[in-house]
Every structure is written in C-alpha cells, then in structure tokens.
Design a protein around this nucleic acid. Sequence first.
DNA 1: TAGATTGTTAATCGATTAACAATC
DNA 2: TAGATTGTTAATCGATTAACAATC
Lengths: 209, 209
Amino acid sequence: MKGTVKTPKISDAVVRRLPVYLRYLTYLQQMNVKTVSSQQLGKFLDINPAQIRKDLAYFGEFGRKGIGYEIEYLIERIRAILKLDQRINVVLVGAGHLGHALSNYNAYKKDNMRIVAIFDVDPGKIGKEIAGLTIEPLDRLKETVREKKAKIGIIAVPAEAAQEVADMLVAAGIKAILNFAPVNLKVPEDVRLHHTDLTTELQSLAYYL
Amino acid sequence: MKGTVKTPKISDAVVRRLPVYLRYLTYLQQMNVKTVSSQQLGKFLDINPAQIRKDLAYFGEFGRKGIGYEIEYLIERIRAILKLDQRINVVLVGAGHLGHALSNYNAYKKDNMRIVAIFDVDPGKIGKEIAGLTIEPLDRLKETVREKKAKIGIIAVPAEAAQEVADMLVAAGIKAILNFAPVNLKVPEDVRLHHTDLTTELQSLAYYL
DNA sequence: TAGATTGTTAATCGATTAACAATC
DNA sequence: TAGATTGTTAATCGATTAACAATC
C-alpha cells in the first residue's frame, strides 16, 4: 500500500515532545498565563525554540506572528493531535506494585485516557480491588478488551510472562502496547510497541558516573 | 595531529543500547551459546548489525573477524564499560507503589547495583520495611547518602515534591538522578538527569492509534 | 583454503538549529 | 509605527547504514 501521503511523516521524536509541551502549557494555564512564545517555552523546557515552532507547524499554524501562542488554544490543538480529546480505554496486565502504581495515574485530571481493567494470573489477587477496578483473571482479557473497546495495553508482568501477555493483547485486537517488562517483545508490524525499562535506565545511568 | 588523543564522544543513543545488548547476551549465555555475530544480534534485537559493531568498536576490539563475539568476554567488557563490575549504591526517595516496585528490582541478579536506602516523608511509612530496607525519614537523606556512598538517586514522589527532592539529592552529592515524577526538573550541569514518565509515554502512544 | 565476519571509512539519512521574510 | 515572533527554508550537525579491506 504505497501512496497514502495525507500526513507528512511525523518522527517519533516530535510526537514524544508534544506531551512535554502539553504538560508545561497546562501548568502555565493554571498560572493564568494567556500566551507564550516559543522562546519562553524553549527556555523552560531546554528545547530550541526553532524546534518547538517546527514541531507545532507540522500540524498547523497555531501561533500568531509577533505574539506567540495562545495557551488555551494550543492545549486544545495538542490534545486533539494526541487524540486526548477522545475517550481512550487502556487495559493493564499485572497487578503487582508496578501495576498498582500505574493504576493510580488513572486519577489523571481531565485526561480521557483511562485504565478500565486490570488483569492478573494470581488467584490470590483476582477479585480484589485496585483504584476502583476489580482484578480479573487473565483469561478474561479478550472478552473485556472487546466489551470495553480498549485500544492500549500495558504490560506490567515479570519478564518470563511478558511475551505471552503481548501475544494475548495482540490476539485481543490491541494495537498499542506499553511494555514495562525487561525483555524485547515481538509483535506484528501494525502494533505499536513502546518499552520502558527500569533496568536499562539504571544501567545506562551508571555509565555517566 | 600526532600525539593528540581524541576522546571520542559517545552519544547517549549508544550508551542506551549497551544494556540492551547486555541483556540479550546474558540470555544467550544462559542458553549456553558461546559466540554470536553482529548479524545474529541485530536480527533478534531489530538493530542494524553495522550499528552494533560500531557501538562496540567505540570501546575496543571485542570481536574476531570471521568468528563474531565471544559472549562471556563481551558481557564482561560491556559490564565494565557501564561500571557494573563495581558496586554502585542507589538511594530511592518515595515509598509508594512505584517505590515498592522499584525496590523489588533490587533482586537483580549479579548486578552490583543496589538500592541501599529508601526515604519517605509519611510518618506512617517511616520505620516500615521494604525489601529488607527500613524506610527512613527524608531529613536523613544527606547523612545516609554519605554513609552508604550512594551515587545514584531515584525520585519516585509526586510531581509537587520532585524538585525539592532533586535539590536535596544534589545537595547530598548525588551526581546521577533517575526521575519518575511527571515534571521537568532543574539540576546543575554536572548532574546527569534521566527522566521516565508514564504519562508522557501513554500520551505519545495515543498518537499512533 | 574459502567463507564469514569484524572494524572502519564513506555515503546516506534524518533531525536539529540558524536565518529571515512575513506580519501581528 | 517598531519591536517581536511566527512559519519555513537553508545550513548544520549527528546518527545510521552501506561497503569493503583485513583477517580469522
């Protein structure tokens, strides 16, 4: 399938900066600031102002020459770009401490992103509540993903179980996975896989000592 | 330029791949594999073989032409590069669910990296044990960092408290910080700061839906 | 040996930064 | 208006990939 060139290819680096902009803009909004320039944003975030302007310009003309960006409007636009203006349901697999920590992020403000189900294999955990959600057995995954129309899956299980869980998420129709297990997962090309790994973070940090 | 030794500047991207190599090499070692080529490594890790060879060549000639890399030796060398052959003490601030999850990574094999102290401000938590460590009050931070010769600090506190904790870690002499709070911290230039942020990860993932 | 694979240089690709006309 | 700031093109920088002589 070549040729659907509607959107210019946006690099992952750009996409990853958008939530960073969003967070600071939201903070400024709370401070009752109305407009901000790429200069000011860049100074606080340690990002080159030209880069900020370029990042935003991929998606439209959000600023006003001589003025800067109107904060409320820019927040609205970035949220739309990231699809945060729509309801996005997330399922979480693994109800250990990490799973607990993650489910608490649920309380996240006016975000439409919500963890709507938590799964575990441990019979001792199944049936218990975390953050208002009842822990379900893993074999309910596919059914629940369908029922809740979940689009994102989070893997917070031990490394040994992670690939199996990933396969189950894929089989359930999940197209975006955030993996916290310290292992390189294999997923089909049409599934977006992000990986956050404490071990890797700490080990690479050690290099700079 | 005879006599001038150019210290090749190693990019962060390279450093971040080393732990990934290390993890797969360790797996291969457990599988009793003795040697591996950049080709094989690259195929499994989805990394260009030339890049793997180049990454490793920054640090020395670890392979043998026509053969590949001897796994045990390469593991040893990467561990030395990352300073994982030395004892590295880590302090963790924040004994919530995330802190719990992080301290469990302690059990990490033959790693010489160890979380040696956990801090919190909550009087209800101070004195309790996590993973064999007694939670200390935050005002003991400086003293404990010195006593234990800790080199890395992990911030696992709410966003509002994160900058203050960062300042305390810096004041205590910590030179490398891993921040899990969803906020942009300011630290002196000589302090290495890495940031892992669930919110940002999830939000950027939403873009790809 | 001959095939395989490294280490390294050169080529390519992509991302960041500088510069500036347009314009608020 | 005149100063400020965007959006965008051009220049630069850096990272990835290809290619290949050296050699196991």
